[in-house]
Design a protein around this nucleic acid. Structure first.
Lengths: 197, 197
DNA sequence: CCTTTGCATTGATATATGTTAAGAAAGACT
DNA sequence: AGTCTTTCTTAACATATATCAATGCAAAGG
């Protein structure tokens, strides 16, 4: 139970095993069935989600009422609307389960407790924030200036595992193109002897 | 001299005036002429730039060799490739001056000194990071699912001042469209009695 | 086992946006 | 003032991607 989370606490947070057991006592976990929501637009997001097993997505609804996927969150990922948490304001995003998923819910109480154990949480969180910004900058620049094909190739390199776990239309949604367009991009790549992986 | 920066230190960082004078002693400022670079792709970014007066931009070159503007930085803004600073890796971005600009260069030495003055710097930095992520998430979701017109209208609302200070083709570059397309978007908006401001 | 449902693919067509080229307007420089 | 440069606009045309509709397929559920 919670193997991934405990291993994460150990390797990423640098916590010793006894502290981990201590921490995990009052911890909230949850089984999320496919299509169940952990956050809906309009709600204030008050927690960070660690994915123990399974796969989540975070998305927005666009002006045409369609889903735009901002990010996927497979095992060992943290996902949250950080803006909503930090500024305590309603979120514009949804987080739900693509697969049946086991998550660890990190609320303010947990953050407080882990912060008291030393500065390592703060350091990790700082790294996560910077990494997130770096990643988003890259994403923005690809969306600004790269073709659908380039964006798709980049996606494959970055998330080869996710590619195999979600339907193609979700990849298209992440890339900002129609599923039919992605199908054609793939056909053209195949024509030129491209093989993923 | 450095009025904006000092006022920023006071109101945003919550520093008292004597501490500010103390801090500003060894500080590095720089006059940047139009088109002069503060960061080039391939360099490791080792500082954060505060814009005292003037206007900077941060951009990437796309696969066609064209400029994609990630952000503008007018007075009282901080700009930096945070990823490059934090992970000490080469940047993919450029930062240069759109107008003749006076900047304050915040290097590690400055950060160290200001950190010693108390926890308020840390808190502000944390807020800046979260705000940045919130902003980038919004930008990504607009690029994923909104039309050029919607993105332009959003830009006007968000940066009415910048609209008047940069050539239209830079706005187009920020929006991820060709300058001719922006021209058409504007014509169509005008046709329907739209007036900015 | 059959039906239903969701997904991927394809073709035909539509639309938004890009490209090229030209000219007009506005600034910058001498 | 005149010349050069940059910017903006417009038009004609090209292209990437979207939309609509139909089909096939495979997995899920009765």
């Amino acid at each position: 139970m919670l193997e991934n989370f405990k291993s994460y606490l150990n390797t990423q947070w640098g916590l010793p095993n006894d502290a981990i057991e201590e921490l995990c006592n009052g911890i909230k976990t949850k089984k999320v069935v496919k299509e169940e929501f952990l956050l809906k637009s309009g709600e204030v997001c008050d927690l960070t989600i660690f994915v123990e097993k399974g796969l989540l997505r975070m998305y927005a609804l666009n002006e045409k009422g369609k889903i735009d996927i901002l990010q996927f969150a497979p095992e060992n990922w943290l996902v949250s609307d950080r803006g909503s948490v930090y500024f305590n304001e309603p979120s514009n995003y949804y987080i739900d389960a693509i697969e049946s998923t086991t998550v660890v819910l990190l609320d303010q109480n947990f953050i407080d407790r882990i912060s008291r154990l030393g500065p390592s949480f703060r350091k990790l969180n700082d790294r996560l924030l910077h990494n997130h910004i770096r990643h988003l900058n890259k994403r923005v620049s690809l969306l600004l200036g790269a073709s659908a094909e380039t964006r798709y190739l980049n996606f494959i390199k970055l998330y080869p595992d996710i590619l195999l776990r979600v339907p193609q239309w979700m990849v298209a949604s992440y890339l900002g193109i129609a599923p039919e367009s992605l199908s054609r991009v793939r056909r053209d790549l195949a024509k030129n002897n491209f093989r993923p992986g």
